[in-house]
Amino acid sequence: MHIVDGALANPVVIGGAVLAAGGIAMGLRSLTLEKIPAAGVLSASFFVASLIHVPIGPSSVHLILNGLAGLVLGWAAFPALFVGLLLQAVFFGFGGLTVLGINTLNIALPAVLSGLMLGPLIARSSPVTGAVWAGIGGAFAIGATTLMVAASLMLSGDEFVPAAQFVFVAHIPVMVIEALLTAAAVYLARQVKPDLFNALQGARP
């Protein structure tokens, strides 16, 4: 769901960059020295997870897992996902340079929102109920990201409206897959290492 250079209108690109910078600053503020290794290694894990391709019918999709990133990292998901997008642009040629801000915003804001809304609920409930909430978070994050990508395109010009609608419809199966995976991942993590979600506990200001 990368937007490339040259597609968006300047106000959208600049607005996205400013908001993303704000989000990154929020995320960094909460990262003390003690938490940097955990945040760094988790941000590398989400980069690796985004390379995983999951079969769907005759095709396959790559994972985004921004909902899970938000649940685990809280506000730190902003800088973590920014770092991932930067590395992808520089070394893989995915996305673009001037659109780094808006791409970060589109992926990280839904991540942080799902973390803030559902994190406390998951912590309170039993593993099975927690997994259901996590699944909702995973679906919400992908859905919101898709809507934000569609909105960025539509704000840039009416000619993108069909493309934006297509992006949304095409991602409905991705939402389902991400929901299932996020639910399973959170269920396992709660069973194996319940304090995974506390690794960056203070990271939610």
Partner: peptide, 11 residues
């Protein structure tokens, strides 16, 4: 299984 895989990676 993929979800457990990702969960295990995070752990």
């Amino acid at each position: 299984s993929y979800g457990y895989l990702v969960g295990m990676m995070l752990v």
